Amino acid sequence: MASSAGPGDRVVAGARPRLVTRPLLLRFVTVVGSSASFYLLLSVVPAYAQSAPGGGSGTAGLVTGALMLATVAGELMAPWLAARCGYRVMLGAGLLLLGAPALVLTVSQNMAWIVAVCLVRGLGFAFTLVAGGALTASLIPPERRGEGLALIGVMAGVPSLVGLPLGAWLASHTGYGSVCWAAAGIALVSIAAVPGLPGREATAGPPLGIFAGARSGALGRPTAVFAVTAVGAGIVVTFLPLALAPGHSGVVAAALFVQPAAATASRWFAGRRADRRGAAGLVVPGLVASAAGILVVALTGVPVAVVVGAAVFGVGFGITQSATITLMYSRVPASGYGTVSALWNIAYDAGMGIGAVGFGAVAGLTGYPWAFALTALLMLTALVPAWWDRTVTAEGGQP
């Protein structure tokens, strides 16, 4: 493990190196391609499955569950595969697995095929996340790691903001086939950018196992903090439309817009600040802001409070995203980038999934306002590993 007093935790003197290079621009192409392909079909495939013969709400949940299960499984195996194949090969394979199976949906509406497509696309998306994230870290100067990772976050976030509503609109106006072709084409065309990226050299050195990384405090504590904030993200996206009384669709739309918008803006700000003053000091404020936002959202009968709370949560979530990923990359050698990318993305996906499932059970017993309030309290329990990590880092010891 690298010492905690790494480039993500201190200010580096001297002129700042160039951030946007040709390889990073090519990486932008693959980020946009994978993100757009994934989000175009994210809300469309469940509706497609529900409209299939014998389909229903259960089939809609089945395909989404298959997609996320395969994504987490792929994130677990991706570092091991990347150590043997290289990040560039993994990224290209991920884009292929994400794009090509979407074409199968245009020829069959059989549920077995739909689930199989979701499983394969989940694996492909996981490979693009892990291998692509590791490549990104290797392409960014350590002195500008926070800003560079934030910039990649913006490049991935914009397609999600556009892709979700655009996919639904295209499906309703032009049919499911056109969305499938678009999602496939975007991913497959992006493969053309992969040869310009570094290959095996990014994995030089002994690889860091994903379970060893999770057990270490240097990576385990930031991963735990981020996973807890991701719980809130899954809850807001899933249950906010259900928590408000009928007739407040405008409030829901506003809240669901300001939350990712605020997260994108704060992630950029936090990344730039981390390069100048260190990322360790941002984790606790980001966590507190996330919890505070969820607590304000608990006032579901006050429309302004819901929108403000969603915005505050978005700010905190964006700060936590930037701070945790910057810290984690600064604490490993290049051979550990794949493990960091996998852990961080698993925390994201698992946190969102667990949050949605758990919140639904709690809300059934307490009602939505109390469930939001209890979620905020749960999130504050992550202050323990956050403060511990900050204290150890401040002392200059091994986290």
Rank of each mutant, 00 (worst) to 15 (best):
residue 177 G to R: 10
residue 310 A to S: 15
residue 286 G to C: 10
residue 268 W to E: 02
residue 241 P to C: 08
residue 195 P to F: 03
residue 142 P to Y: 04
residue 49 A to I: 06
residue 266 S to R: 01
residue 373 A to C: 13
residue 151 L to F: 07
residue 208 L to I: 13
residue 210 I to D: 11
residue 251 V to L: 10
residue 174 T to A: 15
residue 215 R to N: 10
residue 46 P to F: 09
residue 369 P to F: 11
residue 240 L to D: 01
residue 298 A to D: 05
residue 123 L to A: 14
residue 39 Y to T: 07
residue 241 P to S: 05
residue 46 P to I: 08
residue 28 F to A: 15
residue 186 I to A: 15
residue 280 A to Y: 04
residue 335 S to R: 06
residue 245 A to D: 12
residue 145 R to P: 04
residue 71 T to P: 02
residue 314 G to D: 09
residue 310 A to L: 04
residue 204 A to K: 09
residue 87 Y to H: 15
residue 73 A to M: 14
residue 124 G to Q: 05
residue 136 T to P: 00
residue 380 L to S: 04
residue 337 Y to P: 00
residue 369 P to H: 04
residue 110 N to G: 12
residue 1 M to N: 03
residue 160 S to F: 08
residue 273 R to F: 08
residue 63 V to W: 09
residue 375 T to L: 15
residue 127 F to G: 08
residue 128 T to C: 14
residue 372 F to W: 14
residue 25 L to I: 11
residue 372 F to L: 02
residue 101 P to T: 09
residue 47 A to N: 12
residue 291 A to L: 02
residue 272 R to C: 04
residue 72 V to K: 00
residue 384 V to S: 00
residue 162 V to L: 13
residue 140 I to A: 01
residue 153 G to A: 11
residue 292 A to D: 09
residue 184 A to L: 11
residue 135 L to V: 05
residue 275 D to P: 01
residue 24 L to T: 06
residue 134 A to C: 08
residue 106 T to H: 10
residue 44 V to E: 10
residue 343 L to W: 09
residue 257 F to S: 13
residue 239 F to M: 11
residue 300 T to R: 11
residue 229 T to A: 02
residue 71 T to N: 14
residue 259 Q to C: 11
residue 116 A to D: 03
residue 87 Y to Q: 14
residue 27 R to F: 14
residue 8 G to Y: 07
residue 396 G to T: 07
residue 169 W to K: 10
residue 28 F to C: 12
residue 371 A to R: 08
residue 329 Y to D: 05
residue 88 R to I: 09
residue 365 L to R: 14
residue 47 A to C: 01
residue 55 G to E: 12
residue 102 A to Y: 08
residue 63 V to H: 06
residue 207 P to N: 09
residue 6 G to P: 05
residue 268 W to I: 01
residue 3 S to L: 09
residue 13 A to M: 12
residue 182 A to D: 10
residue 63 V to L: 09
residue 353 G to S: 13
residue 177 G to P: 08
residue 219 L to M: 05
residue 338 G to H: 00
residue 244 L to Y: 13
residue 226 F to W: 12
residue 320 T to I: 00
residue 279 A to M: 05
residue 392 V to C: 09
residue 206 P to A: 15
residue 36 A to P: 06
residue 314 G to Y: 05
residue 199 G to Y: 13
residue 84 R to W: 03
